[in-house]
Amino acid sequence: MQPDLSHAGTASDAFICVLIGVCVSAAILWALLKTGLAWRLATDIPNDRSLHTRPTPRVGGWGVLPALALAIFLYAPNFRLIALGALLLGVISQIDDRRGLPARVRFGAHVVVVAAGIALSVVGIAWWMAVLAAFALVWVVNLYNFMDGSDGLAGGMTVFGFGFYAVAAAVLQPTLTVAAAAVAGAGFGFLIFNHHPAKIFLGDAGSIPLGFLAGALGFWGWQHGVWPIWFPAGVFAPFVADATMTLARRLARGEKVWVAHREHYYQRLVRLTESHVHVAVAYYLLMLGSGCVALLALRVPPTVQWTLFGAWYVVLALVGWQIDRCWRQFILTQGNDIDAN
């Protein structure tokens, strides 16, 4: 996909896309809640693995996807096909939310859309790098879904992550800035209803497409020289580190990673602090730090870039180690009255 110089994108376009994203997303979600349709479309019923205690609609995607798609189709035509792929994933995920789909069907859809996204964005890399990129993007697609369990968390990551994408692309690829701004705006419209106490969650129809967009726009930016290959993983570092480490530990224990659990660091923090607000603020600070470090690293030589990138992940590892230490102490003090997971 080559840049469309006939519609280069401007700061005003990006601002308009933010407004479209916020207003359209918030209006749709308000209407779904006001009419009660949100509960009929898809509702998350609390269980022993949940962090919330009351049934909550998980239809955030119904507001986020139309909002970002409208803004991208109007102001960032280069990314219409990528937005279309996100919409397709949203439809498949909504069917899964309502009726349930076999894992092979869901995973197959993820692979097909990711492969199409890579084909649309690739400029010139070896086939094996394209395969590795596909694996990484499929992981990111599902990563977002794993992190949609605490009030304000996934919505905040959308605003911060895509917001930093927009800032980083402003000079070299303004149309990418416009597309990222559209997603950030739609995420903010959702966050209005997702902050504590959450009135709505993303659900698969929102988290799966957002994960795809995080990976697809990040890959496009790398292929078109907007940022180095590490940049997307730097911007979304808190989500990448939390989900990846949790998955690795469960795989090492031979557990079924697709089964619901409460082992993510954010889940343990909520249980330790008994506060969704405190956890959201902590992750917002980590997200802000991740984005600032990533932007700073763009201004230094490549060797220093990788050093800063690695150092930030070391910081996140230390944060995770501290959470694990506090969690073990918590388990010891609670004895057999609490499930270690």
Rank of each mutant, 00 (worst) to 15 (best):
D97G: 03
A31I: 10
A184H: 11
G254R: 04
L132T: 08
I125T: 09
I200H: 04
V131A: 12
G61C: 00
V141D: 00
S150M: 12
W230T: 14
A280E: 09
G60P: 06
V281Q: 11
A216C: 09
V122M: 08
A71E: 01
P102Y: 12
F330P: 10
L143F: 04
A282N: 03
A83F: 05
G215Q: 03
P174E: 11
V235Q: 01
V159W: 03
F231D: 08
S290K: 00
A216L: 13
A233Q: 03
A103G: 10
L269T: 00
A38T: 04
I82E: 06
G90A: 14
S121T: 03
T333G: 10
R98P: 04
Y266A: 09
W227Q: 05
L272E: 01
Q223S: 10
N194Q: 10
G221D: 07
Y144T: 00
H276M: 06
Y144F: 01
V91L: 14
W220P: 07
M1H: 09
P66Q: 02
R328L: 14
T303Q: 12
D204W: 06
L153Q: 09
S290V: 01
Q267T: 10
L84H: 03
L298D: 03
A180E: 02
R98D: 02
G203F: 08
L296P: 08
V22W: 12
A233D: 02
D204M: 05
F193H: 08
A205S: 11
W128H: 14
D97Q: 04
R104L: 15
K199W: 15
A214G: 11
D4H: 13
A181W: 08
H196M: 11
W227T: 02
G254Y: 08
M147P: 08
P209S: 04
F135E: 04
I192S: 15
Q94F: 11
V281W: 14
P232R: 13
R262F: 03
F162A: 07
V22M: 12
L143T: 00
Q2S: 08
D151S: 01
M129Q: 11
L247H: 05
F236K: 04
V24Q: 10
L120W: 01
A109C: 14
L172E: 12
L153V: 10
D324F: 02
D13E: 01
K34Y: 06
F309K: 06
W30M: 10
V240E: 02
F146W: 07
S275K: 02
V281D: 05
F201E: 05
C23G: 14
F135Y: 11
I28M: 07
A184T: 08
F330Q: 15
P66S: 04
L84F: 13
R249A: 15
A260C: 04
Y266M: 10
A130D: 06
R249V: 12
G117Q: 05
